[in-house]
């Protein structure tokens, strides 16, 4: 068949399958499993969940923890530097979270499914990237919370212990503090590193091929454009 016959061959085809209005209406009633719509919904749920956790962490730092400390150990106050660290961390988390939400809505308002192919690919890749980074953001938030809880827990626990034994911080050997610090770092490194690798592996397994296919299509369009 020559190329000029292509259009002729194509033109001779007419679809056997003609659906009537009833069948089409039935299709509209059925839910589709569109991945991008599901990811979009999951991103919004993720934002809601993270927001709740951020509020809980803030309440814990300023209300629950001081109250608990008062009930458990009298005469022990949360030091200023720890409060400052806590406030700083909360501000960092909130700023990162807000930045994330802005990025998401920027990508979302770009266009809908009726935009041209290039814009649609850019949008979907953007949405997937944000979805992936949402997990990393959650991990970052939990890591910061874990570090703060660990530091404040260790510090206040040590303070209570030393107070009972009528000792000072300077009475404890530097070596012991160092061991504690290194142990804390190792535990944190293993936990956070492990979760990060697990998230990365999981995301790649679920969506890796799909994302590669989208990027390949976009790169083909950009290559033509260049």
């Amino acid at each position: 068949m020559e190329l000029k016959d292509l259009k002729e061959t194509w033109a001779r085809l007419s679809s056997r399958k003609e659906l009537d209005e009833g069948q089409l209406r039935e299709m509209l009633r059925r839910k589709t499993g569109n991945l991008v719509d599901r990811i979009d919904r999951n991103v919004r749920i993720g934002f809601g969940v993270l927001f709740v956790f951020i509020v809980l962490f803030i309440l814990d730092d300023f209300i629950f923890a001081p109250k608990l400390l008062n009930d458990v150990a009298t005469g022990i106050d949360i030091p200023q530097w720890l409060m400052f660290l806590s406030v700083f961390a909360n501000v960092l988390i909130i700023v990162t979270f807000v930045y994330f939400v802005i990025q998401y809505y920027k990508v979302k308002k770009n266009c809908d499914i009726s935009c041209n192919l290039k814009e649609t690919l850019v949008k979907i890749i953007g949405t997937l990237r944000i979805y992936q980074r949402l997990f990393y953001l959650a991990l970052l938030i939990f890591s910061i919370a874990m570090v703060l809880q660990f530091i404040s827990g260790m510090f206040l626990g040590a303070q209570v212990e030393l107070h009972e034994k009528d000792m000072l911080f300077s009475d404890v050997a530097v070596g012991k503090w160092l061991v504690l610090f290194v142990l804390g770092l190792v535990v944190l490194g293993i936990t956070v590193g492990g979760i990060f690798l697990l998230l990365r592996w999981g995301f790649h397994r679920l969506y890796g091929n799909y994302l590669d296919k989208l990027k390949q299509n976009l790169s083909e369009l950009n290559e033509i454009g260049n």
Partner: peptide, 20 residues
């Protein structure tokens, strides 16, 4: 799923369709 609109050249067209 498609039918060939031209019955006179059905065999040839079907072969071309498969090729396409």
């Amino acid at each position: 799923n498609f039918e060939v609109a031209d019955e006179n050249h059905e065999a040839e067209t079907e072969e071309n369709i498969k090729l396409l």
